[in-house]
Amino acid sequence: MELLTGSGLALASGLNAYVPMLMIGLLSRYTTLVSLPPEWAWITNGWVLVVLGVLLAVEVVADKVPAVDHVNDILQTVVRPTAGGIVFAAGSGAVTPATTDPGEFLTSAAVLPFACGVVLALITHIGKAGVRAGVNLSTAGVGAPVASTVEDITAVALTIVALLLPVLVLVLVTAAAVVVWRLQRRRTRAA
């Protein structure tokens, strides 16, 4: 179940880096619903939560503006996968020993869960950026706020599902894959 939780959180990070981090930080700090491993307790720090909240507000606004959303997606190509790695490792409850030497990180037990989260978030981010570019081109930018709102709602919903009902992550990912496959199939038929 922990792997499904981590996977759902990483996938949500590919849509919006700050939603899953902020939600697990807040829930771990103020409720008993989420209990982060000690190595990831820094996410519950008040200053970290404030910074995540500010970054989330900037992301939400920037992602609604055509052209700015494209620049934001370019910048987020590093941020979203990194956030995905963090929330996968934290959300999966992986034992992630602290490393004092950054060079040791690549040989420690922390690298595998982090890398899984990076890959999942990067796949989601690339898909999101590609779809968003198509939406912007086909609607002359008018669709950007709508697409962004759908992405934000999806990130929140996926984070909640990953935390409360991790088994549904499989259902949601399968449903999304079927939708993408059908759209792609329709597109190739039209061409």
Results as ranks from 00 to 15, higher is better:
A157R: 05
G127C: 08
A121E: 08
L120R: 03
V34S: 01
T159P: 10
A129R: 10
V178I: 07
T31E: 03
V78W: 06
T139P: 11
A147I: 13
A67W: 13
G46V: 08
L4V: 09
V171D: 07
V51T: 12
G91S: 06
D73L: 00
E151M: 13
L52M: 12
G25H: 08
V71G: 01
P37G: 07
A98K: 15
E151K: 15
V61E: 07
R187S: 04
A177T: 15
P20F: 05
A140K: 04
P66S: 07
G6H: 10
G143S: 09
R29A: 14
D152V: 07
A176W: 05
L36S: 12
G25I: 08
F105W: 14
V65Q: 04
L75N: 07
V68Q: 06
P97F: 01
V54M: 10
L168K: 08
F114M: 10
V173W: 00
K128A: 08
E59A: 06
V48W: 14
A177I: 14
L164H: 07
P81T: 07
V78R: 06
T96G: 03
V179Q: 05
S7H: 08
G117R: 04
V179K: 07
G8F: 01
A41S: 14
E2L: 12
M21P: 02
V167Q: 15
V119P: 03
A110F: 04
K128C: 02
C116N: 14
A90L: 12
C116P: 07
E59Q: 10
A157M: 10
A190E: 03
T107P: 09
G53C: 05
Y30D: 11
A155I: 08
T31Y: 09
M23W: 11
S108E: 11
I24F: 05
V135W: 09
T96D: 01
L4K: 08
V156D: 01
V167T: 14
L15Y: 03
I160Q: 04
H125M: 07
P38F: 06
R185Q: 03
G91I: 09
G103Y: 06
V167I: 12
K128E: 03
T174N: 03
T159G: 09
A94H: 09
L112M: 04
L15M: 02
V60I: 14
V169P: 05
V146W: 13
E39D: 13
A90S: 14
I123Y: 02
T5C: 11
Q76K: 14
